[in-house]
Design a protein around this nucleic acid. Sequence first.
DNA 1: AAAAACATAATTTTT
DNA 2: TTATGTTTTT
Length: 775
Amino acid sequence: MDYLKGLNEAQFEAVTTLQGPLMVLAGAGSGKTRVLTMRIAHLITNGVDPFNILALTFTNKAAKEMKERIAKVVGDSDARSLWMGTFHSVFARILRSEAHYLGFSSNFTIYDAQDALNVMKKVIKDLSIDAEVYKPKKVLARISQYKNNLITVNAYFNNPELLEADERANMKMIGEIYRKYVDMCFRNGAMDFDDLLLKTNELLTRFPEVLAKYQDRFRYILVDEYQDTNHSQYLIVKALASKFENICVVGDDAQSIYSFRGANIYNILNFKKDYPDAMTVSLEQNYRSTQNIVDAANVVISKNLQQFKKNVFSENEVGEKIKVYRSLSDADEANFVSANIFELHNTQQRKFSDFAILYRTNSQTRAFEDALRKKNIPYRVYGGLSFYQRKEVKDLLAYLRILVNENDSEALSRIINYPARGIGETTQNKLIVFADSQNVPVTQVLDNLGFYAPQLGLNNGIITKLGDFWAMIKAFQVMLKTENVYDVAMEVAKRSGLIRFLKEDQTPEGISRVENIQELLNSMQGFIEEQIQVEGGDPSLSNFMENIALSADTQSNKDDDTDKVSLMTIHLSKGLEFPVVHLVGLEENLFPSFMSSSTREELEEERRLFYVALTRAEKQAFFTYAVSRFQWGKITDSEPSRFLSEVDSKYIEFINPMMEARFVNNSGVNSNIFDERPSEPRFFKKKDEKKTLERNFNTPPAKKLKPIATAKIINPSGSSSEDIEVGDRVRHDRFGVGEVTFLDGTDPQNIKAKVIFANEGEKNLILKFAKLTKI
DNA sequence: AAAAACATAATTTTT
DNA sequence: TTATGTTTTT
């Protein structure tokens, strides 16, 4: 029992108490994952069949990591037969095998957010409802709430309070929309994310024999991140656990950051009420971070009213203070961070993979990508536009979806005329209207085109095109029976004309689209190999589709475990740790987000988010904020985040020297420090990133522009230059040859030139970026 | 029916 | 700024 060594008292108790309900309150960095994995290992060594263990996590990443760690202790084969995964993936799997109970086919499609949005748009259009009042996204969010609280369409209409509330909100059509949306999903043979949980609940409540089956199978249940479960998930767990009550939930109320999607913090706060005999173990020692970091995080989180009392502490070194950097712009902020990473990499022998840049919103990534690229620092962006959300990838996937589930009209409308094959909107509408009038699925019309053709009111040319298209799909389907996923997908990509169409576009974006298709095909091959190796693996197309529908964190699996800086949102960083963390964009209205600053509850969640971010750091943490940043196409001034002022000043240290002096004089943060806001447009503030970190940023504001006669061409790296003056003939990479007619600006870094090009006409260029060469 | 031109809305976080 | 949607042109 090697694995039990080195656990502290609380951890030992959490690992070895196998019977009965158990709640583990695990502070940040207290070895939660370790406890969970050891506990599972302990269950198995004590004779529990892995097949009877269900472990639920929140992200695929967490599931994967835990599985690997368990495999190290108990061996591959036992680890594999565990039921471990996200709520969504585990229950999707169960729903597939029990789908017939609910009138679904086992090959139902899983709709991601984008698919759901498309369906919703269609619903609103079909009902001739004003999409300005009923914004599809908003309506979808509302329906999502209902689903997560198990309010079905019928329940909705039977609930006067809800009806009234929606009526008051000027949303009285919500019910109708809800009904139609659910209906459309059903007819498409599709479930959205919320359905996976809702339908599981339905399955377990309506069919006692199914409930009994899974209760008996899952004799030991473990739930990670319990504070982030929503009502729907809570009920599933409760139902499954009610027979044996061997349920272990692990969580930290201070890290609850998903209430926006229905997470209910009371699930963890009320665990004791559900299971009066429950044992509680608190893990309070943080092994991850320095004392300074832990203490600073504690101070901030203590501002929240709603929480368990906990005493998280660290016995590690005190460590360095948190460094705060005030920047002038988003670009400046990014340059600081990349310069800082560069320096620490060189002076402290830190690997690039030791660094994380954490931000509140995905849109903040761009500046950092630019800055890191400039310094040739390798990085990887997590989340954001995931690979599988790219248009070209979704297009090819839509073809494959149709092969698995013909009724998926969402996929059908995506590809029926893409690449263009002369089946336009009018034709498609006629098809749909006709199918509806006959009360049959569109696919049935296509299946029997010869029979229906006379009634369709389409000319023979179009009928032939439709027939060809559908014959092609049918041929793919036949092929799928004998050939493997990769070969079929390759054939689809070729025969559909998708690749040919994409190859016509020789712009860099076009080329990368082709590469993405290639990448998707490669990942299929990888998938097949993986599934074949595993005993009981399933290399089918539907299994592949399910895997990608439920994983947002998939890039492409190649460039793994290399030495790269990690860029991600704070939400994504949960559960991870990094020696050095840069927490950026600490500004009011950005973090805390302007969308979440109105109520105390919302603000407390933002604060927990801050807590999560800071406690990712092991050794060093840096905070940065910008005095103004470029967003919505405009420069917006911003004030430092309130969270900055909530960190006790004894834990932090300003990097900008002037700031430090002022900060010490003023322990509050609303001092004049933050008042000096630049009033000049952005390009006056661009600066040379070669200067040292300590430079002071009170660059003299650029005054009124005066025309000037000569200027230097400065390339973006700030080096080599060449004199240029009005009248010179110059060459531009894209615009070709032209003549300089006007020069503008005083700051040598920001000269603008007016150039008349032979082919392109007059352009205003900023010399720094334009890369002109004199000829 | 397809492409191009034009207009306008949007950026919170994820399974 | 970008992404998306709508209208106009070919």
